[in-house]
């Protein structure tokens, strides 16, 4: 019951991941409901040269519309927006996307921190952010910010992560709303829709 009340107010879901997160995404996506009512944003570290690989992989595993985020595009419900390789992705007050080619953060571009922080201010308590497997600490500062604006912080259980460092760092520095095993993620996301 508690989750039903919470979840009615989810206006955006952002998932951040680095090394080892692709497996989790490929597990989550086929199990997502078709009628998701909020936009899903993915910020995943990867090499610039593999630009469309992630998009293609996910497209083949979900009926939701999946695409690389275009600058000035508006976040639309039920659509999956992938932060393009080698750009930071920000969310504007009017819920459009801004891209940014500034310095790497935590050796990363896109940086998970950047998107979490920008979205935290815009969506406040109606934001849900999930941090997955990874081997650096990108995302941790962003989750602190999400927390301070009242958004929900979800961390992958480090025991189920291929690279536990990133979720471990998050768990040490932020009080998460929930820590989830990778196999429970899809169910959690589906319930945000209720």
């Amino acid at each position: 019951m508690a989750q039903t009340i919470d979840s009615a107010s989810c206006e955006a879901l952002i998932i951040g991941g680095s090394a080892g997160s692709l497996d989790v995404l490929l597990e989550i996506f086929p199990a997502l409901r078709k009628d998701i009512r909020f936009p899903i944003v993915l910020v995943v570290h990867r090499k610039p040269s593999n630009e469309s690989l992630l998009t293609d992989l996910l497209k083949s595993r979900t009926t939701l519309a999946v695409g690389e985020a275009e600058e000035k595009e508006f976040l639309a419900p039920g659509k999956v927006f992938i932060a393009p390789a080698d750009y930071h992705m920000l969310i504007e007050e009017d819920r459009s996307i801004s891209l940014d080619y500034s310095e790497k953060i935590n050796y990363s571009r896109p940086s998970i921190d950047v998107t979490f922080q920008a979205a935290a201010e815009v969506f406040k308590e109606k934001l849900v952010c999930i941090l997955l497997s990874g081997s650096n600490s990108d995302g941790v500062e962003g989750l602190k910010c999400v927390n301070s604006f009242g958004g929900k912080v979800v961390i992958q259980n480090p025991d189920t992560a291929i690279m536990p460092y990133m979720p471990q760092q998050a768990a040490l520095n932020v009080v998460p709303n929930i820590i989830l095993d990778s196999r429970d993620m899809a169910d959690y996301i589906n319930k945000l829709n209720d």
Binding site: L90, I91, E93
Partner: peptide
């Protein structure tokens, strides 16, 4: 300028 970017800078 795009507000979120300039604010971040």
């Amino acid at each position: 300028y795009s507000p979120a970017s300039i604010k971040r800078r």
